[in-house]
Design a protein around this nucleic acid. Structure first.
Lengths: 230, 230, 230, 230
DNA sequence: GATGAATGAGGCTTCATTCAT
DNA sequence: CATGAATGAAGCCTCATTCAT
């Protein structure tokens, strides 16, 4: 009765182990990239942190670059899922954007590892696989159509927002940022889109839901290892 | 009568030669960094582009990093000099900022080499030796004091501006940017500081003096060598 | 039934391979150091002689210096083991010393490679990891206590002996040494410790057991490669 | 009246300057060799210490090796001259040898620079340009003929003596040597040549004339620069 | 699948020596 | 003669990748 199931079982167990090992690798890579920089030589550190052999690494990733992409992809999809779940109920697109930015910055502040990684990836984080995503574009367009935001080409709006947000996170990754930093950055951004000053401040100051990233994102389940900070 | 001058003469000639060689190296380095990225291994390309021997390189720079700093420093000081000379006569600090940003972006657009380099250096360009400089901070403060700009912590204002400007240049370095791009970015920035929409648009649209960078900046006297584009 | 053994097996096989490669390297290094001198740049020659790649070398040794230490250590321990096995049965400490020195010089004469290496390492061979070892110090002390040797500070005695022995080996490494050389050096040393002339000569002339170094020392299993003689 | 003399004068002045520069170079080289080792890369340090340009160096020496030989030669000749002047009046060859050795060691102790250099040159100090020189050989032969020293092949005697003396100086260069060290070494050497124990001790203990090396040897007119110690 | 020894291209750096001024 | 910029051969070292076990 379970003999026929065995192959399936074995297959599943094997798949699980694969997934687990892969995850360990991606997690370690996030750490190492964050600490040593995305252009650094990384494999030795990654396999040591993940506790696997050199050969095993190549069973999962073809190259350095491959690994960076994997980290980036997984990070992005986990973050987007996380944030969209929180903001999707908000009807006003301006508030949705404000809250989304706020959460993004909050997560970065609570996870230095993440902040450092994003700061490292830097401007490259934009582009096809950009962290700032489709639904943000939709929200922007929506806000402009509703007259909440000033008429303005979409890509300009996206770039401004992304530039400012990235810079904020870069600052955070350098440490020593006060709690008033995020709302001020956000309200500057909102004003840039034509929101009236008081309203921008109000939106940016709205209390944010507290995200438990650790619970949701597999990548966050490890502390930064500052000793690598070469 | 000229015998006593000889030592001086020799010294001066030698110093000249040093300066010239160093300049060749920095110039070549700008090209190579722009094309291959600031983290790339660069020395071989640089010495070939500069037409000097490997040993000569090390007579001037200790390392890759050292070279990058030299390029960055020289670039910054040349750009700042160039732009400040143009804007120093403008009485309104808001317009000074607007014009300065506009010139910065214009120079970047006219010199793909420069745009690429700045985009590469990216966020790191900020910090103590940041491209965005002392006088910009002064202008901002001034504009806030006069009530032209919204009250706002200086570092936030600087970061926003720098983030947006860097991003704009990054976009330019990727190519395919229309002429309306710059004014739109700038007016978004100005609005972010609380300028009323119409005025922001007006300032951002003011015609700019045409800078002849090639005439002024020693670093610009060479065309990009796209074949190096890694 | 043998599946569980696999990991062990693999581990052992790998360890074996490591040991073998390391040995090949140390052996080659002995040759090259002997021929080119201990301060020479040696890595290229060593890896060629050992038939391994550059990278492999660095899997085993961090540097030139590291390699030299490894050769020195292994040589010393093998030599000491070899000689002590021969002399430990001799009751008279003076004779033990005389025989030990004789054997040491004999080995050096029979293995030009070894002689050259020791001559190269020269004075540095003394110090914590000195070729002249613990048991020699014990023998000296013993001989002094028994009144066989003149009262004299131990370190002076050791230095004298070492100086003379090293010098003898240096001479041997230069070639053209007659068979009477060793006994004469040894009897001079023994006289220096206060042994009466005739007795010194007698001890120094005692026939020595013939050591088969090749059979015992892994490092000796290769002929000198005189073509490397720098 | 002095016109005809001018050429001579100029020639002499020029020759003087040449000699002075050369001396500065040799002196600096002694320091650098002593500190960094005789196989080290040395030219940069030497020209800096001597305060001359790279090109000037090659006006005086063809190569590194050339420089080492020059230092060695000058040192040897100055030392020999110095010591022989002191001992030539001593009628007993055994005492002449004892005194010579004592002076040699004394000079080494008073001039750490010298001790280090000799220790660096090490066994190579022997050979054609050896520090231990012709007149020592004569003294030895003489002492043997007179029956003061035990019958013994000359080269064995020379080697023993040189080995022991070099070793003593090596020890001195390492520092922390007491004043009783030298006499003990010397008396061990003398006993090795068959001198009766008491007499050896007496000879070795004879008070030595105090040499003022600084006054005599141009090479000693500079302090060791320990900061160069590699 | 996992392992880790071996690889070797690729880049880095030094330094003795030359040579135009 | 003195100078010091330039040279480039010679060595050093890393690390992504392969592959036999």
């Amino acid at each position: 009765m379970d003999k026929p199931l065995q192959p399936d079982h074995r297959t599943r167990v094997a798949a699980d182990r694969r997934a687990k090992t892969r995850n360990r690798l991606v997690q370690s890579a996030l750490q190492v990239f964050a600490c040593k920089g995305v252009d650094a030589s990384v494999i030795d550190d990654v396999i040591e942190a993940a506790g696997v052999s050199r050969g095993t690494f190549y069973n999962y990733f073809q190259s350095n670059r491959d690994l960076l992409l994997a980290v980036n992809d997984q990070l992005r999809s986990e973050l987007i899922t996380l944030i969209e779940k929180e903001v999707c109920e908000i009807p006003d697109p301006a508030e949705r954007i404000s809250t989304g930015l706020g959460l993004f910055i909050q997560v970065a502040r609570d996870n230095p590892l993440l902040a450092r990684f994003i700061a490292q990836v830097g401007l490259e984080a934009s582009g096809p696989g950009r962290l700032v995503c489709k639904s943000l574009a939709d929200d922007l367009q929506h806000a402009i159509q509703l007259g909440r935001f000033q008429e303005c080409p979409l890509h300009i709006a996206l770039d401004s927002m992304e530039g400012a947000a990235l810079f904020a996170i870069y600052r955070i990754s350098l440490g020593g940022i006060s709690d008033t930093h995020a709302p001020q950055v956000i309200s500057t951004i909102l004003r840039g889109f034509g929101l009236e000053s008081q309203e921008a401040a109000n939106l940016a100051a709205k209390p944010l839901p507290k995200l438990d990233v650790r619970a949701t994102c597999s990548l966050m389940n490890s502390a930064a290892k500052p000793e690598l900070t070469n």
